[in-house]
Computed example of a mutant assay.
Amino acid sequence: MDIKETIIETHREGIQVVQYNKPYRKNAIDPVMYQRVISILNSAAADDSISVTVLTGTGDFYSSGNDFSVPVEDSKNNLNILKDYIKAFITFPKLLVAIVNGPAIGIAATTLALCDLVFASENSYFYTPFTKLGIVAEGCSTFTFPRLIGDRKATEMLLCNHKMSAKEALDCGFVNYLYKPEDLQSKVWDKIVEVSKLPKHSVTATKKLLRDTVRSELLETNDKEMEELHTIWTMGTSGVRSKI
């Protein structure tokens, strides 16, 4: 399938929408899709016509996580791509919004903590089964989850493979708003359009102030998580083809 089909990019009045579009694999993200999103985010960062970037999925999943369907010997390159993908979230200077239209698993769940606003469907859930797969958490979740949802809940999620429901995610502050599945794509846009019209300089300057205090720690966490993943994959204790 062509890259333009697996990642759909559209624009509407200063809002850039990026859709994971591989519904036959529950929008699992492969290396080519990662590279496309990296390019989109890095380009949008310097594009004055874009004030908000929105991430969402097609079909009934936001994303089922990694889909590295490549030979094991390419795992180092995959990790470099994954590291750059996470870095693009960390360094993105504008508003980054996620519309979670269904379950978010692995990297799709962890990177939500790097977004500025998260709108979710009531039928979504958030699942990070890293230890179940014999690997370690990524997406800077070992830093962001305790800060966002507390140590206890972060331990449940990242160590004990707890599947967090949409209601629980709202209650603990992991998402901002919940919508009925049939209302998500219509009602969520009122809020997104509202924030897209805020003064750009004010938004970017305020986000910079918010992120400057933790950016170096996020980048360092990303490095450390990738190092641990590389060690595990090199040892062969986890299948590189697993979806996480």
Rank of each mutant, 00 (worst) to 15 (best):
M1K: 09
D2V: 10
K4F: 10
I7D: 02
I8W: 05
T10C: 05
E13Q: 11
E13W: 04
I15A: 07
I15M: 06
I15S: 02
Y24G: 04
I29S: 01
D30E: 15
D30K: 07
Y34D: 13
Q35Y: 07
Q35M: 13
S39F: 08
D47E: 06
S49H: 08
S51N: 13
L55M: 11
T58G: 12
Y62V: 07
Y62T: 04
S63H: 00
N66T: 15
I81W: 04
K83I: 03
I86E: 01
K87H: 13
A88W: 01
F92V: 08
K94T: 03
L95T: 00
I99F: 01
V100K: 03
I105R: 06
I107H: 09
I107W: 07
T110D: 05
L117R: 11
V118D: 04
A120Y: 00
S121E: 04
Y127E: 04
T128E: 10
T131V: 12
K132Q: 15
L133Y: 14
I135S: 09
E138H: 14
G139Q: 09
C140R: 00
T142M: 09
T144K: 00
P146G: 04
L148G: 02
D151T: 11
T155Y: 15
T155H: 15
E156S: 14
M157N: 03
M157W: 06
C160T: 07
H162G: 04
K163F: 05
K167N: 14
L170T: 04
D171T: 07
P181C: 01
P181R: 04
K187D: 12
W189M: 11
W189D: 07
K197T: 10
A205W: 05
K208P: 08
R211H: 12
E217V: 14
E217R: 15
K224R: 13
E228L: 10
T237K: 12
S238N: 11
